[in-house]
């Protein structure tokens, strides 16, 4: 059978495939319908804009996590990393006021440091897993504790607050809009596009998938496994720093409670989106939907008093499990495999 004549058999297959990948999108649409029927204000411009902006943090981090997970790794440190970067960024900017003033220069310095810190923290995670040959779970569990306690230490147990004088210059990064969309949403869009291209259209993306699918094959296929894996953690770090850059101007503060459980939300978003937790298959588009689904659940729960507040976690848990089940369930698919 040649390549061009196989379309008839391929069709049924790809149709099924589409339904599967559309799972998260369907779940999101259903959630929106539920939200709208509970309260029409759910679809108001203001709320949609809030939703998208909120999704940006988890979404951007989750895009980084998509690379790590696709390549067969895991990064539990992202939430603490965000808090630590936010803390250090605030300290640096507060101290730079005397030298650079309260304008854009200080903000840029803060952002630059954030990016360096993020990439550096990712590099540490990557090198410890690859060269140190320690399981990613353990390495990032360790760095998670370290970053979390560092921010507590920097803040002296309390809250680090950004100098009010700088906020004027920095505030627009969170609160302003461009062409009707808040800046964080634009950042999210750009990161998504770059992430999608990187994962689906470059050799690097292919290498991530290959490593996650079978590290042995990757090694024998002339792939520098350690380097690629380390880079995935650095991408994760970069994404965390970008999320932090748009997070800090929101409230201008960081404390030990910043970014708590973000790692789990990011991982959940990635998995809801259809990426396989054990690696080898990643979907940036799905991750974006996953992040939107997670924020929408929280948003809808705030929009109704039908469900006891104490059961919020139950609702979130149920929806996450159902969303993944919809995708994974073997819907009567006869497993056709020949000799």
């Amino acid at each position: 059978m040649t390549l061009s004549t196989a379309n008839t058999t391929a069709k049924g297959r790809s149709m099924k495939f589409d339904v599967k990948t559309a799972g998260p999108a369907i779940a999101l649409i259903l959630l929106c319908i539920i939200g709208f029927s509970l309260n029409p204000a759910f679809l108001s411009e203001g709320n949609l804009s809030n939703l998208l902006t909120r999704s940006a943090f988890i979404g951007i981090i989750a895009i980084g996590a998509t690379f790590v997970i696709t390549a067969g790794g895991i990064d539990l440190s992202v939430g603490s990393m965000a808090a630590a970067i936010a803390g250090v960024m605030i300290i640096i900017m507060n101290n730079a006021v005397d030298m650079l003033g309260t304008g854009v220069a200080t903000v840029l310095l803060g952002c630059g440091c954030s990016i360096l810190l993020g990439i550096g923290a990712g590099w540490i995670n990557g090198v410890l897993t690859t060269k140190g040959k320690i399981e990613a779970f353990i390495v990032t569990l360790g760095t998670m504790g370290i970053y979390r306690s560092l921010v507590t230490y920097f803040a002296d147990g309390g809250t680090l607050s950004l100098d009010f004088a700088i906020r004027g210059a920095y505030r627009p990064v969170y609160y302003d809009s461009f062409l009707g969309l808040p800046i964080p949403v634009w950042v999210f869009i750009v990161v998504s596009i770059v992430g999608w291209f990187l994962l689906n259209r470059t050799a690097f993306g292919r290498y991530c998938t290959a490593i996650g699918s079978n590290e042995g094959v990757a090694k024998y296929s002339a792939i520098k496994v350690d380097r690629v894996k380390t880079i995935t953690y650095m991408i994760q770090g970069l994404c965390v720093s970008l999320a932090t850059i748009i997070y800090v101007p929101r409230l201008g503060s960081a404390s030990s409670s910043t970014g708590v459980l973000w790692e789990l939300e990011a991982i959940a978003a990635v998995i809801i989106g259809g990426t396989v937790l054990k690696g080898g298959y990643g979907r940036i588009g799905g991750t974006i939907l996953g992040a939107l689904i997670l924020t929408t659940i929280g948003n809808i729960l705030n929009f109704t008093d039908l469900i006891s507040n104490y059961l919020n976690g139950t609702m979130q848990g149920l929806i996450i499990i159902i969303a993944v089940w919809l995708q994974r369930g073997d819907w009567g698919k006869a497993k056709a495999s020949k000799t």
Partner: peptide
């Protein structure tokens, strides 16, 4: 274990090396 990505299609396998 070392030659082909069994869960992938032919194209990515062919060009991986």
């Amino acid at each position: 274990a070392k030659g082909l990505l069994l869960d992938k299609k032919m194209r990515p396998n062919l060009t991986l090396f």
